[in-house]
Design a protein around this nucleic acid. Structure first.
Lengths: 354, 354
DNA sequence: GCACGTTACCGAATCGATTCGCCTCAGACC
DNA sequence: GGTCTGAGGCGAATCGATTCGGTAACGTGC
């Protein structure tokens, strides 16, 4: 008489590994492997039989076993700033485009928040052989993560670059060139008093490249054109943008042109301008560097160099794949300087009041 | 005499596996394993010697080998909407909080863009044993991904829920309750003509839960209070918000109260209100459901139920861990209905014009 | 007829960890 | 003194894939 214990029967849950496929197809495991990889010839009939079994049971090779044997994981690591810092739209587009580009290349993406107190996550990433390569965002001029990756001998590509980027793979936006271009554009329109609304003072203090390079290029470009320039740091949020503009109007009412690389502050900047009743572009011209959709969203539409964030992620993935496949290849960089899209926020400088 | 060939000497690049650690510490590999896991006793002296070697060479167990043997990867999958759809702030906070919570629990997160043409990525995720469990975002009322995960027998937790969520683990915001609460709040203040600015018509058409539930709850609450309600779908971007408000003023000038769950449209809504010269909250009250920082950013500050996105991600990770550890446990849900934070955008209804 | 190459397949080693079974040596206890 | 117990450690099997070497069978060319 059977006992009352009613263990759930899980017969159909036998593990589907390559051996089981081989058994059902009546071949050896190596034949299944070769049939799938095509690295040795397998007769059409056998191949078909194996494929039929695979389709029937929905088999897929175990990723861990394959990674162990092949020595690669088909996975990329993406190191993102911790969530506590709110990401800018451009940064988000980087992340999204990296993920999509990786998916297109049949690669998975492992996310790791770096900085803050999540160093364990970063350590796991680089020393547990969990990934074949790493994409690093938000690079500082001196960045210890770069050093750690170099020591670990793990291929990596940075979005942004350090102070001495010669030996590494990177993709970056040429903020210096773009800011200079904005200054020249305004100067060409007759503006003589120009302000730069930069990223936050904290970022600059921690050695954030774009903030430094933008400032240097701004100062230089303004000097070249014999204009006068004001450099204003501004926190990455709308409220700060509004505040920043208010201060600018109060302390430097002579300003007729603004260059901004702080896209998070744009909504606030716009609001500040509207509240002050300043007419753009008649009384004040604004040019900048920003994600295209933010430039389009500004009123009036912002004349700006559109940061090609969506393609940059794809480029980074591409470079990383090359680096992984051919570690001895010479380093490659990509410094992007998209043209300025002329929209509605810049115009000839107003005539000086007499 | 040595040859001229100068192969790079890579002696220090010998693979650091558990065997090498064992050799250097003069013990067997199993002893190293037990010393690290603590699953069997190892003398203090031996343990110390092993640890010293590990610290010296910076050894970390190979993730693939461990996953293969243990049958778990210590990795979670996070299925996100494809980048082509711009994520809302609340969604981004979900992602960020999931990643942070996972990092705190020493788990890695594998990102997979679903929908669009990235089904291979999703397939890899669920059938290659790459992850121990999956967190699914942007759930539709009928969602085939849920079915696929159930078939695959992979533990998963959804953020949001399907039409019949009884048998699954999920964390969700009770949009129905929150919208109703907003309606009652406005009704209590004397408003009789209320509009709902909902998510986009496309989302509703594809069976997006919050859009449906919000509409149903809105209709019901308005009916309960004997008020009249207008339900307006609105695309997820500022321009649409502005447009939507303009239409609302034109077609339904009698409206004195607005409820919105469309946070992406908020900036546009604000802009539309300002352009129309409508005084909030004197002439028009606005209440909604949104991420707290967006509510604070609205002018005047938005009375709203603050979506606790940052804790929701953490809850989802917690539930998923439980599901993985104890698959036979009864299902658990979490339906969050945070209180409405009274800010500055609601006030008693204006006296009806005579 | 023999050497040789090709096709098609099998068996076994391998990747790097975990874990089970077994062994030895003390010390405790009857 | 013999048995038991537990600590401490070793060796080997195992997870599921890939891949190398081997081996039949079957032409093909001389």
């Amino acid at each position: 008489m059977p006992t009352l214990r009613c263990e759930p029967i899980r017969q159909w849950e036998i593990r589907m590994n390559i051996g089981e496929i081989a058994r059902r197809a009546g071949v050896s495991r190596s034949t299944v492997s070769y049939a799938l990889s095509g690295r040795r010839s397998v007769s059409a009939a056998t191949k078909q039989r194996i494929q039929a079994v695979i389709d029937e049971v929905g088999y897929r090779p175990n990723a861990a076993a394959r990674a162990l044997k092949e020595g690669r994981t088909r996975t990329l690591g993406l190191v993102v700033p911790p969530a506590s810092l709110r990401l800018t739209d451009t940064q988000l587009e980087f992340v999204a485009s990296v993920v999509e580009a990786a998916a297109r290349a049949d690669l998975d993406v492992l996310l790791s928040p770096s900085g803050g107190d999540h160093d364990r996550s970063f350590e796991r990433l680089i020393s547990g052989r969990r990934v074949d390569g790493v994409i690093l965002m938000e690079i500082r001029l001196e960045d210890e993560r770069v050093t750690l990756l170099q020591q670990a001998g793990l291929p990596f590509v940075t979005i942004g670059r350090t102070a001495h980027p010669e030996g590494t793979f990177w993709v970056d936006v040429d903020y210096a060139a773009l800011v200079a271009r904005c200054v020249h554009h305004l100067a060409d329109l007759g503006h003589r008093e120009i302000a730069l609304i930069n990223r936050s003072a904290e970022l600059a203090a921690t050695g954030y490249g774009p903030a430094h390079r933008a400032q240097t290029a701004f100062t230089e470009a303004v000097r070249q054109r014999g204009a006068t320039g004001i450099d204003l740091p501004c926190a990455d949020d709308p409220a700060a943008g509004e505040e920043c503009f208010a201060q600018l109007r109060e302390r430097h009412p002579e300003i007729t042109g603004i260059v901004t690389i702080n896209e998070a502050a744009l909504p606030g900047l716009q609001r500040g301008i509207e509240r002050a009743g300043v007419a753009v572009p008649r009384e004040l011209s604004v040019a900048g560097v920003a994600a295209a959709h933010l430039a389009e969203r500004f009123r009036p539409r912002l004349t700006a160099a559109d940061v090609p964030a969506l393609t940059m992620g794809a480029h980074a993935v591409e470079l990383l794949q090359e680096r992984i496949a051919a570690p001895e290849n010479p380093v490659r960089h990509l410094l992007l300087a998209p043209p300025i899209s002329l929209r509605d926020s810049t115009a000839p400088a107003p005539l000086p009041r007499t």
